[in-house]
């Protein structure tokens, strides 16, 4: 693909620290290619990440980048965007960072429809800390903190974001990088809160522990379970069992938060000058 990766990656920080076969690098690559295609200004873009494997993403990217506290990336991003709405603000988070400790911020950022693009790396596990179950670990799966099987239900994060007010919701997967690039590009260009869940394999702490296997086997698993959103929509509930839809799952146009606040400023200031 005709994109100058060197422009967007901090060369001196590479190769990255993610494990062999980890899908995070594929998501990072998809983001970089999507950003290039979006035509957005690199110098007017801030990438913010939290803690965990996904948290490392910001350090590899050649933008203004901020590596914050666990789960709180969206709160810092909200401050950046509110303070200067001209900036493109992107949050990179994970299923632990974004759905567990940061879950409330995801809900409320969605509700505000603030113009932030979230790329959530969902590898179904806490990888960095050694394989504890996350809110995205499927029920019954084994993790270091669910040695007898996980009794928790996992989220459907895309449904969560949609019902909370996000105006762009999509799901991509490391097995489908082309589709993921297109999805992230559309999310970047969407005006409003764009939530993109990316399925990414963790062979070390999830795949091997749950009999799926290594990176290649996990991609095969994706191949067998991913269904395009259009096809998924036409399927009966029984047919959908165990399958995962990818693509743009939801998109509507609604007034964006910082635009609305600017309107408040304009109204108040106009009112004051009329006094």
């Amino acid at each position: 693909m005709d994109v100058n990766i060197d422009k967007y990656l901090r060369q001196d920080k590479m190769p990255h620290i993610w494990c062999p076969g980890c899908g995070h690098g594929t998501v990072l690559g998809s983001f970089v290619r999507a950003f290039d295609q979006s035509g957005l200004d690199q110098e007017k873009t801030v990438v913010i990440s939290g803690i965990g494997c996904s948290g490392r993403a910001s350090g590899y990217l050649n933008f203004d980048t901020l590596h914050v506290t666990h789960g709180r990336a969206l709160t810092f991003a909200t401050g950046v965007k509110m303070a200067n709405p001209e900036l493109n603000v992107i949050v990179m988070t994970g299923d632990g960072d974004g759905a567990a400790i940061g879950g409330n911020h995801l809900i409320h950022s969605s509700r505000r429809n603030i113009d932030i693009t979230v790329v959530l790396f969902n590898n179904n596990i806490y990888g960095m800390t050694g394989g504890q179950f996350s809110p995205m670990t499927p029920t019954g799966d084994t993790a270091t903190t669910s040695p007898y099987g996980n009794i928790d239900q996992n989220f459907d994060l895309c449904e969560l974001a949609k019902s909370s007010g996000a105006t762009f919701v999509g799901r991509g997967a490391s097995y489908q990088p082309r589709k993921m690039i297109k999805l992230i590009k559309e999310g970047l260009l969407h005006k409003g809160f764009a939530f993109i869940e990316t399925l990414t394999q963790c062979p070390v702490n999830y795949g091997k522990r749950n009999m799926i296997g290594g990176a290649r086997d996990m991609l095969k698993w994706q191949d067998e379970h991913l269904v395009p959103d259009k096809k998924y929509e036409k399927m009966d509930p029984e047919e959908r069992e165990g399958l995962i839809s990818t693509g743009v799952l939801y998109q509507v146009s609604k007034e964006e938060y910082t635009d609305k606040y600017q309107q408040v400023i304009n109204n108040v200031m106009a009112g004051e000058s009329n006094e």
Binding site: R72, F76, T78, G79, M82, N84, H108
Partner: peptide, 30 residues
């Protein structure tokens, strides 16, 4: 807002603190 500034009520105290640090890095006096 009457002076062109920004106010945001966040979802919790933690978010309020994160938000002002983000705003500060973007150039605001927060």
């Amino acid at each position: 807002p009457a002076n062109g500034g920004k106010f945001i009520q966040m979802e919790d105290e933690i978010a309020g603190m994160g938000c002002i640090v983000g705003a500060s890095l973007a150039g605001a006096k927060a």
